[in-house]
Amino acid sequence: MRAEPYVVLRTSGLTKLYPVGGSRRLVALSGVDIDLAEGETLALVGESGSGKSTFARCALRLVEPSDGDVLINGRSIRSLGALGLAELYGEVQMVFQDPNASLNPRMTVRQVVHEPLRLHLRMPFAKREKRAIELMEMVGLTPAHLDRYPHELSGGQRQRVGIARALAAEPNIVILDEPTASLDVSVRGQMLELLKRLQAELKLAYLFISHDLQVVRHMADRVAVMYLGGIVESGRTEDVFARPLHPYTRALLSAAPVARWGVKRQRLRLAGEIPSPIDPPDACRLVGRCPMQQPACTTRRPPLIDAGGGHAVACPVVLA
């Protein structure tokens, strides 16, 4: 008998609607189910408007979801009060996209790193200071950086501070919201290696949110591709990249820029641009853009269908 991996973060039917005047609703997230297992990296890939950032915020209740539930380490967070949520953030942490905007400009690095130690772990100052120095070294900074303000650090150093802050509370789940999107490529590689090393050392589960397919391929064990608030394809990273099934995934992969000479790819083009997420019809979201569209696509929204080996796709046409 093979033991099922322990699921540390599970969402079921997570939905977020925003009223936009009258009875109209903007569907930011519609019924998203994911499982994140202990110690693994699950990447959420999508373009702007796909709902991947809304998903992260709903999963943490930084934004209140409209429907659905989130289990974190087996516990539902749906009915948690303010105290319960504050406690929850000791188990799940987040690294933000723009380290410049996510660090309080008036706090020194010391204050930033001490805060979770004080609030989550209730450490006295001397212990906090000792731990802060350890954290600095863990993320590749030096104790001297503790006295700096964010504006005195480079982009990469700031992101390291963001990672130190997230790890200070000793979570077992870390949500990484585009952690390298605002960094130069030469810094990006170092940051990804740091994240990988920390994951192995601390047995962290990563929910890795990104639009950068190259980074996702480098980091993730499994991938979920999002489009207009829903998952259209998910599976193991090598399967999805080697054998993309959904037309959207194919278009996305074939459009990704490659820093290599002489790569000529068959480009799958989608017509037009992402349609409005306001009151979408009950149909496949790719209707109108998809080169493989069938009449049946417009009658209902296809669910995720298992294509074998944990690879699932929300498109009956490609499986037919």
Binding site: V185, S186, R188, G189, L192, V215, F241, R260, V263, R265
Partner: peptide, 18 residues
């Protein structure tokens, strides 16, 4: 060379052709 390596993030040509 370093910029290229960082931009390619360890991808091999076969991975891209696939």
């Amino acid at each position: 060379r370093r910029l290229l390596a960082a931009s390619q993030l360890g991808e091999t040509p076969e991975m891209i052709e696939a």
